[in-house]
Design a binder for these strands. Structure first.
Lengths: 345, 345
DNA sequence: CTAAATTTTGGGAGCGCTCCTAAAATCTCC
DNA sequence: GGAGATTTTAGGAGCGCTCCCAAAATTTAG
């Protein structure tokens, strides 16, 4: 069975190629009668125009790329990323764009992947999940290639670049302030990696909350984590001997690790030690003690990222757009309070 | 800056368009001298051929589609799927294919997504994650469209279709047999959904193991789960009053839910009750009691899926290929044994 | 009813590549 | 050195669409 082309449809409908093209692209200036006749043939033959030809002629592929650099791929097991990916996929569908996924697996892969991503005629635009030092390469490449790009999470060099992020400083600040308000005084934190903006910003929020309430900022109570469960587990073992009465973990996954370590040490949450996480993953309500945590608007972020990118593509918008999404502090059992949800800007 | 074309490169190198094309596609019959001259210009100008033009002319897009039907998208939070996706992405990269991700979010989306997936000139082939009744639609569509396809997991109608799967019956059989060998006699199971081949097969393996050892098959000890944590949690609460001495959960995530319920009931794993899961997710070794589970070769499966598909595409292989991957029973603490890893075919 | 304005349609050119064929260049061997 | 075999190269045709412009059909107005 030979593939149908516009020309075939045109012939069967007794019109020209151009007219069929107009019908397919919903252009006006096609008479009602002709439109119907063409539509009938299209449906009858189950015709779809060839994607490559269309892309070549129109210089638009209707495909967006999602790049997860090495720094992110490693943490793809953190449910946060699949969640975000899901939100983005959804937003792409709704806008009739197709999503191409680039999961960078190793340093070597990175090199020969960039050209594949940036080559003309394949992607209309690119989304890069980032916030890590090591991601400057891919961001720079895309910028050089002059391909529309939106970064997910604030990159280190954020001028010239559109991005969508949450206010990490404030979100962390709110979480820690909450602990302070509940009377906790020796609050420790498991941070994200210090070579990521998330890691830095959430720590800054933690510091800010302490300072503001005249609590000492004790570097011994700060342990760098890596956003993994074992990372949280080992981090907490370093901190426990210092007898903190609360812990702020920069991610739920690390909070789960902390929880495991605390349980093993025979301590009770929240009585002996309060715990607050970050992300509001489903798993944070599956633990025996439910986790108080900062909820990120994952799906909405995905939508926003896609919309920003499409705006750049379709309206040729040049100047960088920075979007900061709101977060919510979700109060459950692990912090020792038992109130309603608090909404912060 | 105008986009460069083959013709531009040809001009600069003082050769013809065809010669540049030959160089780019690594064809022989280009003299060493010319080859070098052209390569120099290509590197110097940082040229990459236009993807759409290439696809149109060669009828090959070097892009593979990964479709997660609705039944799967729902469970994208189960780390198993992101893991598999990662394996597939990796295999694509290694073979220089690009991966397009189709995450079906709703019934309505499904309808208008099929054509996007199946339209000519965009994908060379398609992988469908499946094993659920509801997935027959997408599989049928792809088959009709005559686009090369490999299904991940055995679909309900598996003739005419290539797929890669594990031997679910045997894997479950081995896991349950292990429990029997350890002296457990009232073994309950939390199954997968009964409208999925995984659900059916793992239950069958459970049954087989009991029958073979002359243990009664008691339907009351069988509860249908849905592969979610809360699903496992509630399933176990139905079973616990029946005083089982062991539980086989058809997924690690459900096993985690079971573990939570068991802990809350004040029972000890494995002393009061043994627990075996399925998948070997990282999280199964993060719990306070480490989970005995069936390990699936996720990455290898991904590689195998991609290789099978590429074989169909590049060699026009028509007849369906069925691959069954090996699994391992990983013995940790939750089953009450403490031995080495057992390998079963 | 006719001329002008407007709507609708058809076909050429072009998007940037690959593939094929034939011509040009080079090599082989007597 | 030259005929023939072989390697290398050039350029035309074509992939299937969109976009533009001009021609044809239709509508409107006088």
């Amino acid at each position: 069975m030979k593939n149908l082309t516009l020309e075939d449809i045109a012939e069967r409908a007794g019109v020209s190629r151009s007219t069929v093209s107009r019908v397919i692209n919903n252009q006006t200036s096609v008479s009602k009668r002709t439109h119907k006749r063409v539509m009938d043939v299209i449906e009858e033959t189950n015709f779809y125009p060839n994607a490559a030809a269309r892309t070549l002629a129109s210089q638009r592929s209707w495909t967006l790329g999602l790049v997860l650099p090495l720094s992110v791929s490693i943490f793809f097991t953190d449910p946060y990323y699949p969640n975000l990916t899901r939100g983005i996929a959804q937003a792409c569908n709704q806008n009739n764009y197709t999503l191409a996924l680039f999961l960078v697996g190793s340093k070597e892969e990175e090199e020969n992947m960039y050209p594949r991503i940036a080559r003309k005629g394949f992607l209309d635009g690119v989304m890069v999940q980032s916030g890590h030092h090591g991601d400057q390469g891919i961001i720079g490449t895309m910028l050089d290639m002059n391909i529309p790009m939106v970064v997910i999470g604030r990159p280190f060099r954020s001028d010239n670049v559109s991005y969508v992020d949450i206010d990490n400083v404030n979100s962390a600040y709110n979480a820690v302030s909450h602990l302070v308000r509940l009377g906790r005084r020796r609050i420790a934190t498991i941070t994200g990696p210090f070579d990521s903006t998330v890691g830095i910003d959430r720590l800054e929020g933690y510091r800010k909350a302490l300072v503001e309430r005249n609590l000492p900022y004790d570097p011994n109570l700060v342990v760098e984590g890596d956003f993994t469960e074992p990372g949280g587990y080992y981090a907490i073992q370093k901190i426990l001997p210092l007898k903190p009465d609360a812990i702020f973990a920069a991610s739920d996954v690390m909070a789960m690790g902390a929880m495991r370590a605390i349980n093993e040490a025979g301590m009770k949450i929240p009585d002996d030690i309060a715990l607050v996480g970050f992300d509001d993953l489903p798993l944070s309500s599956y633990s025996s003690v439910q986790l108080t945590t900062v909820r990120q608007p994952v799906v909405q972020s995905g939508i926003r990222v896609v919309e920003t990118l499409i705006d750049m593509i379709e309206n040729g918008n040049e100047k960088p757009i920075h979007t900061i999404m709101d977060t919510d502090l979700i109060i459950r059992n692990s912090c020792g309070a038992n109130q309603q949800m608090h909404n912060f800007k």
